[in-house]
Design a protein around this nucleic acid. Structure first.
Lengths: 344, 344
DNA sequence: AAATTATAGTATAGCGTTTTCCTAACAAAG
DNA sequence: CTTTGTTAGGAAAACGCTATACTATAATTT
């Protein structure tokens, strides 16, 4: 049917092994033979059968991206796709392909991680934090399967993961506000139990304290992560007690409510009150005024995860356990403009 | 190393073929033997080697999703991911895996479509319209490779595609506005040359005309697809000439500008003036007031594409060339509430 | 009882590469 | 002139499964 390496060998008058060696760039074949073989390959439009190559090489050159998909994923989690694109971009540089595997409840029972590993349908796996659980982690670790997890697992495990340093994010936010001259910083968070939220607050708190500004307890507020709740919380915050000169919003939904509340309060931004938030969402840039944000380059995180696993695959002795990336400050118009960014 | 079908056969005291038949559910094996073999499979934790299976079956049970990725894809094109999730969900029901392939300029030269087809790394391909060009179309058609394209190719080709009926979308918008009692409908579009835009306008126009309302030419406006441009265009529209009682916005960016302009004009929405837009974006629901939109269920489009190709693969005689899906009206608060939806 | 037909299972030839081990042929060294 | 090395290429055994063709036994029919 399709043209095989044998056809090429016969037509070129050489052996199958010679053709294989030419294809794979062995140096033990003379220039003349190489040229001859390549000419025939060209002539017959030969493409090696990928299935046979995988089989013979006992490797797929494929990585599974394990995640939790679903309807409206782009709306619920716009970062997932960017991470994925980042992983992909790096993997393809190393000539790996990437197949998606979904672990969500609604998913039709697909390949389990066990099956992927023992069935050998991929050489490695990149796991999005949302799809990780202790079982999966245990399987991966016990089988010593090449992997990287995107996001701090949040439980005790030897798995290799990569995440952004969220405490540092809080620190960056506070440092920026300090540089703007803010001294009385408030924090409005969503769920008190959220680890990321805690770390961000910790970063803010410590940084303020280090500069001699202890955050007042009534300036640390938790509310629903909704525009309405944040709106109300902000009005409360601004109407009684000591007025803050800056608000750190833990997420975009809160920032939206804070923004409107400040607008209604009549205070000027950023002169009378500044605010800053975390993470960029597709709608962040339509908020008026454009908020200053401490962002995570999720695409880059994906790239780092991709390159880490690719490098591990090339060199199995690579000793990387975990690492964190730096958040970045994106200046908006809700904090004063920093012309000298010596600090950052 | 890993446990193979031979190990299972030996331990169970049957032949390799018998084990294979048990695995693949052939009915020619007795219940007793089946049970015995399954017990051994369980005991040895045997998982068939996916690479060997692909090789022997001459099929991968894998579909390529060809698209154009890139940094910030989620921001630039939030629909891409939803489509992908839809395709994935359906493919996995048919036990196909899905691998991503990027065609974007910035992409590291990956597998070309030719290589995928002749290399046999996938059994079929789903192409996102943004990644399609005449070359790719020609290759797919000439090799008669199982495929589906998401989005009207826009050029002459025998390729199988699926898209939403955009003209019908325009019709739906107009019918809704008519039902609301609007008679003087304006249209603000982005690029005049955009095919989708043209079809939507055509749908609106024809529907209005059918009800005896010819749209005035000065009520059909083209401007940049930016908030600012749309804002200005709307103010112009509202300040001179005949006042429309409804505006059809061709996209969300325009809707954003229109919304603000109406707010500034002091007209009440939807009583004095209504507006409607197309497609839902991640930020659509943060626009105040929530616009009524004619939406495309892109996840569902993905699912249809996935199921179409899966069915084609099961049954190669399936004669589907192209088909379109229905847009859906999502009621917001920028048009009057339709309690009886007899028409839709 | 012989002939036919089901039924349950086996033997084995692929599938299309890679890769290890060999073997010529020739060059350099002793 | 023999020995040793080096280089270019070939032979063939894997890789682990599927699926076809076949066989032996049991069940049914004549």
């Amino acid at each position: 049917m399709a043209v095989t390496i044998r056809d090429v060998a016969e037509k070129a008058g050489v052996s199958v092994s010679t053709v294989s060696k030419v294809i794979n760039g062995w140096t033990t074949i003379s220039a003349a033979t190489t040229a001859k073989v390549n000419a025939v390959i060209e002539e017959l439009h030969f493409t090696p059968n990928a299935r046979a190559v995988s089989f013979a090489r006992r490797a797929t050159k494929n990585i599974v991206f394990l995640t939790s998909l679903g309807k409206e994923e782009a709306y619920k989690n716009p970062h997932m796709f960017d991470i994925m694109c980042g992983v992909y971009s790096e993997l393809s540089k190393y000539h790996y392909t990437m197949t998606l595997v979904d672990t969500s409840e609604e998913a039709y029972p697909g390949e389990t991680v066990e099956e992927i590993i023992s069935g050998g349908s991929a050489d490695g796996i990149v796991v999005h934090g949302a799809a990780l659980n202790e079982n999966i982690a245990k399987t991966i670790v016990s089988k010593n399967f090449p992997h990287t997890v995107i996001g701090n697992p949040g439980f005790e495990t030897q798995i290799c993961w990569i995440d952004t340093n969220h405490m540092l994010g809080g620190q960056f936010a506070a440092e920026h506000l300090l540089a703007c001259g803010c001294k009385k910083v408030a924090f409005i968070g969503g769920r008190r139990t959220d680890v990321i939220s805690q770390q961000r607050l910790k970063g803010v708190r410590q940084t303020m304290l280090k500069s001699g500004h202890r955050m007042s307890t009534e300036h640390i507020i938790y509310t629903d992560s909704s525009r309405e709740a944040a709106h109300k919380a902000t009005l409360d915050l601004l109407s009684c007690g000591e007025l803050p000169d800056a608000i750190v919003c833990e997420n975009n939904m809160i920032a939206l409510g804070v923004s409107r509340a400040i607008e209604h309060s009549g205070l000027s931004v950023p002169d009378e009150i500044a605010f800053i938030t975390f993470d960029r969402y597709p709608y962040t840039n339509i908020i008026v005024p454009t908020p200053t944000i401490v962002d995570i380059d999720v695409y880059d995180m994906g790239r780092q995860a991709g390159s880490t696993i690719a490098r591990k695959l090339q060199n199995p002795n690579l000793l990387v356990q975990s690492f964190t990336t730096l958040p970045i400050l994106v200046q908006g118009s809700t904090t004063c403009l920093m012309t000298d960014n010596a600090e950052f």
